[in-house]
Computed example of a mutant assay.
Amino acid sequence: MGVQRIRSKQEGFQLAHEQHQELLTALHECMEACNHCFDACLKEENVKMMAECIRLDRECADICGFLEAAISRNSPFISQLAQVCAEVCEACGEECRRHDHEHCKKCAEACMKCAEACRNVA
């Protein structure tokens, strides 16, 4: 049982996850930003006001982690998952932009960067 490889015209053979290295980096950074934002939002004075941000932080971190794992195992559904991930990242980023907290601003930036990277693969 060998490691599955993809043939690229410019680079010869490469491991499947190497083809998506930029996306993997964006996914991991987004997941970390969302987890940090989630935790920080729970500590805000008006947690109820942050409920949608908290919910979307969890959704986004989860889909980013799932897509990261799917890429590492060369799932045949990478393109479809990337499309869903882009939508979730964008929704989370838009929600985070509504708040003035520094953790929300950083999360919004990571989400939008990740959404773009996902769209490039989808």
Rank of each mutant, 00 (worst) to 15 (best):
M50H: 08
L56Y: 02
R55V: 10
C30T: 04
C60E: 03
D39I: 15
F77E: 06
M50E: 03
C111M: 04
H36T: 15
K113C: 03
I71C: 08
L67D: 01
C53K: 08
M49G: 06
L56D: 03
I63C: 10
R55L: 11
D62N: 10
A61W: 04
A69W: 07
C85S: 09
K113D: 01
E59D: 11
K43C: 06
A61C: 05
C60N: 06
A70N: 02
R97I: 02
A40E: 09
R58Q: 10
E87I: 10
R55Y: 07
G93T: 14
F66A: 13
N74R: 09
E45M: 10
E45P: 04
A61E: 06
I54H: 03
M50V: 11
N46A: 13
A69L: 12
A110K: 15
M50G: 05
K113L: 12
C111T: 09
M49E: 12
Q83F: 10
N46V: 12
A61N: 03
K105Y: 03
Q83V: 12
C89H: 02
I54K: 01
Q83G: 07
D39V: 15
A61F: 12
I63Y: 05
R73G: 01
C37T: 08
E95G: 01
A117M: 11
E90S: 12
R98W: 00
C118N: 08
R73T: 14
I78L: 05
E87K: 13
C104D: 05
P76D: 08
K48W: 03
A33P: 04
H36W: 06
F66C: 02
R55E: 09
N74I: 06
M50A: 07
M49R: 14
K105W: 01
H103M: 09
I78V: 15
E109I: 09
K105D: 01
N35T: 13
C64Y: 01
M49C: 03
D62I: 13
C92W: 02
I71D: 01
K48G: 04
C53P: 00
V88K: 03
D62A: 15
A110Q: 10
E52W: 07
E45S: 14
R58Y: 02
E109L: 09
E32P: 00
G93N: 04
H101N: 06
N46R: 14
C111V: 11
A110T: 08
E32G: 01
E116K: 13
H36A: 14
A69F: 06
V84W: 05
K106W: 07
K113W: 01
A82E: 02
V84K: 10
A70D: 02
V88T: 13
C107A: 14
C85P: 00
H101W: 07
C107W: 14
A91E: 05
